[in-house]
């Protein structure tokens, strides 16, 4: 890097090699300093995650017992359990997964395979990206008005499920669109070349190739729905429930709701119960995410 040798035959030089060399050391120091600064900033983000996990594990592990999973909510911290919330979250998933994936994949197929470039389809595309930016609490207001009141579903699993489905719909659409777009054009052409219709091509060639990507994206979106609290609060999902739902029209509670309730209570013991609840919630999410990663790794790079 250093310019030391004088070039022969050059009468006037605009660059003084000595000063360049001198300045070079300073520039290198700046480079090193900032490099460490950037690295430390990155570490801060990781550190926060570390502290967060440590805090929650150290506070909550003690409360994680078999009884914690078998008990319903209680005013006494030692007797408080997560059974209703855990089962409720599973019920919620049972509604959100099929509804959001049906709508999301359908929309993605439409946009990628059928939609021509025109105003209506541009509007749909623009609308999806805007919808992704709407705060979840506003989706709660939508759910409250349309599903809870107008359609009279009350604070049931169905009302919450529909609301959550709409909330994560943009994420699933975008993930499915990307997966469908990643299917090479030439296998589509191969199918058309055999005399296959468009729908045959989509069902037999495009979707089978895109399904791993779609599943990965959908599971990540679903895990967002598992952790969302605000829409459930607005819909009016209760916390103290002493029975398990038997159908989608039953009322229920969910993990984040239960955690929210415990976190708000002033007794110190309830903070530990909340931590235990968070551990369950995070384990739930971790499980879903590992499935997503597994699918992604198993089916990666096939072309």
């Amino acid at each position: 890097m250093r310019i030391t040798e004088q070039q022969p035959g050059v009468s006037k030089r605009y660059i003084d090699p000595d000063s360049v060399t001198k300045r070079m050391d300073g520039r290198k120091v700046i480079n090193t300093v900032f490099r460490s600064l950037f690295f430390m900033a990155t570490l801060v983000a990781l550190l926060v995650l570390g502290i967060l996990f440590y805090r929650i594990l150290s506070q909550g592990l003690g409360f994680l017992s078999a009884e914690f999973f078998q008990n319903f909510a209680s005013r006494i911290p030692e007797k408080a359990g997560i059974k209703a919330a855990l089962v409720g979250s599973l019920w919620l998933m049972a509604v959100v997964a099929p509804v959001s994936m049906f709508l999301g994949i359908g929309t993605a197929i439409y946009l990628e395979e059928y939609a021509k470039k025109n105003r209506i389809n541009d509007l749909i595309r623009m609308n999806i990206s805007n919808l992704a930016g709407v705060p979840s609490v506003v989706f709660g207001l939508l759910g409250l008005t349309i599903f809870v009141r107008a359609l009279a579903l009350g604070n049931s699993i169905l009302a919450a499920g529909f609301t959550m489905s709409l909330l994560i719909l943009p994420v699933i659409i975008v993930a499915a669109q990307e997966a469908i777009r990643a299917v090479p054009q030439d296998v589509r052409e191969a199918s058309y070349g055999m005399g296959a219709t468009k729908w045959q091509t989509i069902v037999r060639v495009v979707l089978p190739s895109a399904i791993p990507g779609i599943l990965t994206g959908s599971i990540l979106a679903l895990s967002r729905a598992v952790g969302e609290t605000a829409p459930l609060i607005v819909i009016g999902v209760p916390v103290i429930i002493h029975f398990l739902p038997t159908g989608v029209t039953d009322t229920f509670t969910a993990l984040p709701m239960q955690i929210y309730d415990w976190a708000k209570r002033p007794q110190a013991d309830f903070q530990q119960v909340a931590s235990a609840g968070i551990i369950v919630l995070m384990a739930f999410l971790l499980f879903m995410n590992s499935i997503a990663v597994l699918i992604r790794n198993k089916f990666q790079k096939r072309y």
């Binding site: 052409e189 191969a190 070349g193």
Partner: peptide
């Protein structure tokens, strides 16, 4: 119907996965 009677082989091998 036409493509059922007329087969095609492409530039790049494009088997289905």
């Amino acid at each position: 119907e036409l493509r059922t009677r007329v087969g095609m082989v492409f530039q790049k091998p494009n088997p289905f996965p």
